[in-house]
Computed example of a mutant assay.
Amino acid sequence: MFFLYWFDTVTGEIAYLAYSFHTNGGGVRFREVIQRHDVGGLILLDYANYKPADADTPLEELEALFLAGALEKLSEIRLENVRVEPKREDPYAP
């Protein structure tokens, strides 16, 4: 499995990520960050999940295909009702 990340050059935040996988015949996916959540000081991300028409598309080509509207949107990955609690054994926890 390989991952490729694109970062916003102004904010330094992740804008997109792409990855390859080998299960169920394999392929590649491209994810666009659609929302950021600050939960207890952690930044968590929601994504739109896309795939190209050709499962053998190189990861490096996925951003251009996305910007051209040539990827198929498969799903959205949205976090809901997330809570972050410190571990009880954490000596620094309040």
Score class of each variant (00 low, 15 high):
residue 65 L to C: 04
residue 72 E to V: 15
residue 46 D to S: 08
residue 46 D to M: 04
residue 33 V to F: 06
residue 43 I to H: 07
residue 72 E to F: 05
residue 40 G to D: 04
residue 46 D to N: 10
residue 43 I to V: 15
residue 49 N to A: 03
residue 64 A to Q: 12
residue 65 L to F: 05
residue 54 D to L: 13
residue 64 A to N: 09
residue 57 T to M: 05
residue 59 L to G: 00
residue 38 D to E: 11
residue 68 A to N: 10
residue 54 D to I: 15
residue 64 A to E: 11
residue 59 L to I: 11
residue 39 V to A: 02
residue 39 V to G: 09
residue 44 L to N: 04
residue 47 Y to C: 08
residue 42 L to K: 13
residue 54 D to Y: 08
residue 35 Q to H: 15
residue 61 E to A: 13
residue 37 H to P: 12
residue 66 F to Y: 15
residue 53 A to W: 03
residue 46 D to K: 00
residue 45 L to T: 07
residue 33 V to H: 06
residue 49 N to P: 00
residue 47 Y to N: 07
residue 51 K to M: 03
residue 40 G to H: 04
residue 72 E to N: 12
residue 47 Y to G: 04
residue 54 D to C: 15
residue 43 I to K: 13
residue 53 A to G: 14
residue 39 V to T: 09
residue 59 L to W: 00
residue 42 L to A: 09
residue 41 G to Y: 00
residue 42 L to V: 05
residue 66 F to G: 10
residue 56 D to Q: 14
residue 36 R to A: 12
residue 58 P to I: 03
residue 56 D to Y: 10
residue 69 G to K: 02
residue 60 E to K: 14
residue 68 A to R: 03
residue 44 L to K: 09
residue 70 A to Y: 06
residue 64 A to H: 12
residue 48 A to M: 01
residue 50 Y to I: 03
residue 63 E to A: 14
residue 48 A to E: 01
